[in-house]
Amino acid sequence: MLIFSVFKTLTDQRVTVELKNDLSITGTLKSVDQFLNIRLDAIEVSDQARHPHMMAVKNCFIRGSVVRYVQLPAEHVDTQLLEDATRREAASQTKR
């Protein structure tokens, strides 16, 4: 839920999703769910030449499991808060 919570705060930000097949898609994060499935708008594929089939695609829904990385805008991440949230979650996990 922590990461889901983080992604919720990043809606409408530009993120770069790198898939496990090395496809990199930059787009505006429109929504995310608890499986970290991601919906992107106004996408750009970083290596157009290698993935010409993506040229016409303007938005996409990415299944969470195929994601390797998501590059986030650092200015929109509060690292201190993030660490606290992680500690809270870790604490609540051990309690259970």
Partner: peptide, 11 residues
């Protein structure tokens, strides 16, 4: 190099 990165746990 990347500034801020989410890494999916399955990898």
């Amino acid at each position: 190099k990347m500034e801020m990165l989410f890494v999916r746990g399955d990898g």
